Simulated scan of single mutants.
Amino acid sequence: MNDTKSIGIFDSGYGGLTVFKSIADKLPEYNYIYMGDNARSPYGDHSYETVYQYTLECVEWLFAQGCPLVILACNTASAKALRTIQQRVLPVKYPNHRVLGVIRPTAEVIGGYTETNTIGVMGTRGTVNSESYPIEISHFFPELNVVQQSCPLWVPLIENNEHINPGADYFVQKYVDELLAKSPAIDTILLACTHYPLLIPKLRAMLPEGFKLVAQGDIVAHSLADYLQRHPELEIQLGRARSKKFYTSGDEKVFDQNASIFFDENIVSSRVRW
């Protein structure tokens, strides 16, 4: 067994750390490498071509670090880049590597949360405009009504640690009101950005009692555990030294300071320069 092989986890910035935390809690025995492309974040308003290029560069970097499996813990990257990487890049250049996203695992279970068959999806402009969630959810729950709302200011607020301040309340409430105005039948909101779980305390205070808020961390962690069980040829490659390494394309000191908010541990990262 090669103890240097790791599961790679990629995000455009910090949000993927919420998914990483859930994965590491459920599957603590493996080695992990996290890559945050903070220097080029946020991805939400970039074009498909730009997001694809940035994502591919980060995925290939993780492959080079010894990651046979990479999780795109970023909804925008999953929406805009995952399918092309899986279908066009892996078979030609990396046939023994795998890249997974966060949209499909969520789509497979989201129908079990709603009693009205109507859910709201809150995400970045890139995720919402891609229509990835309505398309994927329709494969598993064709009867579900999916109502989307883009929240372009939430990621900047969170990444600047402004989301905890009262001044952020206006922008949190604004997008919630815009979503609920689209359908009174919504009883479940999917937080389709891995940054958004940090807003859950504010969202619970703003939403009617009994509303369901669905974050993706535990869903993705459960799906990954199942995937590894079904693919022992990949699972056996993974090292079990319980190591966690963190990298950022931005300022490592800033990353370390802010990352602890998402990961709930002190983090020491290294910088990757493109």
Results as ranks from 00 to 15, higher is better:
M1Y: 13
M1E: 04
K5N: 05
I7P: 01
I9T: 00
F10K: 08
F10Q: 08
G13I: 06
Y14W: 08
G15M: 05
G15N: 04
L17P: 03
V19N: 00
F20S: 05
S22W: 01
I23K: 01
I23C: 03
A24S: 12
K26E: 08
L27I: 13
N31T: 00
D37T: 11
A39C: 03
H46N: 14
Y48P: 03
T50Y: 03
Y52A: 07
Q53P: 04
Q53H: 10
C58L: 07
W61V: 03
G66D: 05
V70P: 03
L72F: 10
C74F: 05
N75P: 10
A77W: 07
R83P: 00
R83M: 15
T84V: 15
Q86V: 13
Q86H: 05
L90P: 05
P91M: 07
K93C: 06
R98D: 04
G101V: 13
V102S: 06
R104I: 15
I110L: 08
I110F: 02
G112S: 08
Y113V: 10
E115M: 08
N117C: 13
I119W: 01
M122K: 12
T124N: 06
R125S: 11
R125H: 14
G126C: 01
V128Q: 04
S130Y: 07
S130R: 10
E131F: 13
E131V: 12
E131W: 11
Y133A: 02
S138P: 12
F141Q: 10
E143V: 14
E143S: 15
N145E: 15
Q148P: 02
Q149R: 12
S150N: 09
S150M: 11
P152H: 09
L153I: 14
V155F: 06
N161V: 15
E162I: 13
E162R: 15
H163N: 07
D169S: 15
Y170L: 14
Q173F: 11
V176E: 00
E178C: 13
E178T: 12
L180M: 15
A181G: 14
K182R: 15
P184W: 09
I186T: 14
L190D: 01
L191M: 10
Y196H: 08
L198G: 00
P201E: 05
K202M: 07
K202E: 05
L203Y: 00
M206C: 09
L207V: 07
P208N: 11
G210R: 11
K212Q: 08
V214P: 01
V214Q: 04
V214E: 01
A215K: 05
I219T: 05
H222G: 10
H222W: 09
L224M: 13
A225K: 08
D226W: 09
E235Y: 05
I236K: 15
G239F: 00
G239R: 02
R240F: 00
R240C: 02
R242E: 10
S243M: 09
S243C: 12
F246Q: 03
Y247K: 07
Y247V: 01
S249L: 03
G250S: 05
K253G: 01
F255S: 02
N258F: 09
A259M: 04
F262K: 09
F263W: 13
S269F: 07
S269K: 06
S270D: 11
V272R: 12
W274N: 06
